[in-house]
Design a binder for these strands. Structure first.
Lengths: 336, 336
DNA sequence: CTGAAAGCGCTTACAG
DNA sequence: CTGAAAGCGCTTACAG
């Protein structure tokens, strides 16, 4: 059990020669409204310091119904390659606002999710961030209705919930712009949307098409496949076998790009001399490939931090935030 | 604020026609000791169900000084590639024991770490798991003295703390055994220990040497470098340039192995025909490489889960647990 | 400017 | 077998 010797407000008050009431006001920063004398204030603060007073949070919570704690529930962000940095961002933002993060992972199991939400609500977290590993449309879990919540990396069009998303459409524009700037006009796209409710691929596609259109270019073709290294490899190899060629290839994530690299190498095609590659994620993997992969980075830490800040902001407007992506330049795009 | 309508124990008791005392005993499973009549018990349970009674955790904690919550503090496990699955394991184990995980990341900042520990202790977590991204020797933070704690993936030889570690020495034996079984006798090792207090490399080396010795083999040589893709690439290339050759190469992690793959490919050497490669981690990266990398897998989820279970086990003996690694077979070792 | 008092919702000796 | 009562450590109207 996590014990410290138990110094109570009573102890502080006694040592300072005041009542608990006065000590409480002072220690909670209400000296001004209460017009506490400077002398009294100094005595109380001194006593608190001397005794190393730590307010009992359970007692406080019992009265105030707040716990200085936020819940963060997700399907699977901790086990994930870089999505887990949403957790890091959330944790840091929470601390800056004097809160701590209570986390739970459902692994996609609805019953476990229900349990976790229930436990968090039981513990009176001050709100819940509901996050998904992959950007998509969801239905707000029943247990979250009536609970202060922010959706992170997902959205429920049918619910009135604050929502923090990456700006995938803008990201799509950035990716296309890299190729346009290099003077490439023959562009293929690898990977669209793996599952029906996923949103990232579709939005990126919109941005890609829009940006290319500005340069008078249309997407030459799309190879659809799951967003994994193995699928990226197989799909690219098949495409090449069927005579597929392009000046530029936009991959929907870094893993797909890794697979594409492998298939291109096998076919004797060099990146970027024979074909330029751009992808999405900006994960560590992008920097590991040779040549380094130019990738449009998802702002995971910022997403996590923003979700927590909005959750704890009483004036939050409740709409949807789209956080911009940014290009992490590698050497996979041909220099003009 | 996370509100539900507030049904209290009082409400349940009234509806069941008993006192709060009796209701409390029943709902906490003390019916037997208290020899509550079955009829009373049924009435109380029925009332609790009817009213959807949820005990107020803050009130309970104020009395019991327990919160059904465990702290998990680390330098950087969330942002990490796969180490973050320690979090997943911890979260699941905690839930199974009706606890929730309160997490905090210090990013290696001692002041932030101190703050996080303080906040956790203030919130009366029932114990703290102190985890590091990378296996190493640490000094138990001052704020954790006197607090129930378990070290995860790290150890403090000077402190009496329960400790959960991967069995890196056993892992070293497994890696070497893969090469021995393939009949390889000329073995090099890539990467030793990047920092003085890191323990993984040294222990793996001990296991590697021991296992090879059983086959009458000595390590032919060691290339020292940081455990990154870039360093792995550069070190392997330099080694090859200096005329380095081996039948088998043991890499201290999957990233190093990826770098080695790149350098070997550049030199026209094929895996596993020209050289066999084994590494450590068993991360997703291992399965992405071509050929798939045979890698000794670190049991991160189990490590996290075990740490939490020990933390919450009042009978825990307090020693060090070494959790075995296991081989994830790929195609990077030549078949005999 | 400061204090006595109520009350947040539980648990748990104690008494019968 | 069951209940009246104390008490965990705070916050906050209320009174002066």
């Amino acid at each position: 059990m996590a014990l410290r010797r138990s110094v109570t407000l009573e102890d502080v008050a006694r040592r300072a020669g005041v009542s608990r009431t006065t000590a409480s006001y002072i220690l909670n920063g209400h000296s001004a409204q209460m017009r506490i004398s400077p002398d009294t204030e100094a005595r109380v603060r001194g006593a608190a310091t001397d005794l190393d007073y730590r307010p009992n949070r359970s007692a406080r919570s019992l009265r105030t119904r707040r716990t200085a704690t936020v819940g963060l529930i997700s399907d699977q962000i901790a086990g994930e390659q870089y999505g887990s940095s949403m957790l890091t961002g959330a944790s840091i933002a929470a601390r800056e606002l004097d809160h701590l993060v209570v986390m739970g992972e459902s692994g996609g199991d609805p019953e476990l999710e229900r349990l976790l939400i229930e436990e968090m609500v039981d513990r009176h977290v001050d709100g819940v961030v509901y996050a998904t590993r992959t950007a998509r449309t969801i239905r707000l879990p029943a247990g979250l209705r009536g609970v202060r919540a922010v959706l992170l990396n997902c959205e429920d069009p049918t619910a009135q919930v604050a929502c923090v998303l990456p700006d995938d459409e803008g990201g799509g524009r950035l990716a296309a712009a890299e190729l346009v700037a290099a003077g490439l006009v023959h562009v293929w796209v690898l990977g669209v949307d793996p599952v029906p409710d996923a949103t990232a691929g579709r939005r990126r596609m919109v941005g890609i098409r829009a940006e290319l259109a500005l340069a008078g270019i249309a997407v030459a073709g799309v190879v659809d496949c799951d967003w994994t290294v193995g699928e990226g490899f197989a799909a690219t190899r098949d495409w090449l076998t069927r005579g597929g060629r392009a000046e530029g290839l936009i991959c929907m994530n870094d893993r797909l790009a890794m697979g594409a690299y492998q298939a291109l190498a096998e076919a004797g095609l060099r990146v970027p001399d024979d074909i330029s590659v751009v992808s999405f994620d900006g994960s560590a993997l992008a920097s590991w490939l040779r040549p380094e992969l130019t990738s449009v980075e998802l702002p995971f830490p910022e997403l996590g931090a923003l979700a927590v800040r909005r959750l704890l902001d009483p004036d939050d407007h409740g709409g949807t935030d789209s956080v911009p992506l940014s290009v992490r330049a590698g050497g996979s795009v041909r220099r003009r």
